[in-house]
């Protein structure tokens, strides 16, 4: 419901605040006010400077694949990270809800950007306070650009997953992992130019990651995620175990994958 509401809001905003590369700072602030009202209601949002940082290319090479990098610093415990692309048809790109096995210091993912826009990252601390930081990104057309590859082979691969660890994991130390998921993540805005029909939306709605039975994060995603989504996250392995991933999409398809990390661990070197 909230998803639909946000989509409707986005379309409404696009109508009220038409796409202009030279949108003023005031226009952008007005847009953010509307978006944050819709997402967070009247809750106060503090300045996240020094607590949460957002990195993204100032000018993206590919508007359908804009890499973003969120870093959390300081001592406040963050339970949720919201990623918001203000100018997108559905501004909420996703929310990461961290579990006990997460080390929420850094997150990376890739999003589509439809027009020059502010992006916001909002961190919610465990006591329910909200802190935001923003960045301006120059990219356009990432949501409505036609998809490139031939969709038959794409659908054969749907749900395939891959995990890469930055380095061999060590027990009791944070491990950074990159998860790749094959999925067209069609957002319903791309048209088959011959039939004149829009390609039906089919996109990932949740990505749940746990280490053995302990939650790392649940990610509520939306149509702004790039095709073949990527998530880089950090978790803390207390014992040799398995990283379990479950992905659900808007067609009610469920994809599961277990990455057996039992044998990947190095014992900490002695002296």
């Amino acid at each position: 419901m909230r998803r639909l509401m946000l989509l409707a809001l986005g379309l409404l905003l696009s109508a009220i605040l038409p796409l202009r590369a030279e949108e003023s700072d005031a226009d952008r602030a007005a847009r953010w006010d509307l978006v944050k009202q819709a997402v967070f209601g009247a809750r106060p949002i503090g300045d996240g400077t020094g607590m949460v940082a957002l990195d993204a290319p100032a000018r993206a090479m590919d508007a359908a694949l804009v890499p973003i990098d969120v870093t959390v610093s300081g001592t406040r415990k963050v339970k949720t990270i919201y990623i918001i692309v203000d100018g997108n048809p559905s501004p909420m790109a996703g929310a990461f809800h961290f579990g006990p096995a997460a080390v929420p210091h850094e997150l990376k993912t890739r999003v589509r950007v439809e027009q020059y826009t502010l992006m916001h990252v909002v961190a919610e601390t465990d006591d329910g306070q909200l802190y935001a930081t923003s960045r301006f990104v120059k990219a356009a057309g990432g949501c409505s650009a036609p998809s490139e590859a031939d969709s038959a082979s794409e659908l054969q691969q749907i749900g395939r997953m891959k995990l890469r660890l930055a380095r061999p994991p060590v027990l009791g130390q944070p491990v950074t992992a990159e998860l790749l998921i094959r999925h067209p993540n069609n957002n319903g805005m791309q048209m088959n130019q011959v039939t004149r029909n829009y390609i039906p939306a089919r996109y990932i709605q949740t990505v749940s990651v746990s280490y053995d039975t302990t939650k790392v994060f649940d990610f509520d995603a939306d149509i702004s995620l790039s095709k073949d989504p990527e998530i880089t996250f950090t978790f803390l392995p207390a014992q040799p175990g398995d990283l379990n991933v479950m992905v659900k999409d808007s067609d009610k398809a469920v994809f599961r994958k277990t990455f057996n990390l039992q044998k990947s661990f190095e014992t900490p070197s002695q002296g």
Binding site: P146, E148, D150, Q190, M191, N192, Q193, V194, T195
Partner: peptide, 13 residues
């Protein structure tokens, strides 16, 4: 053989 599909996806764009 794949050109019609590619044109369907991108031609009008």
């Amino acid at each position: 053989a794949r050109l019609p599909a590619a044109l369907a996806a991108r031609g009008e764009f």
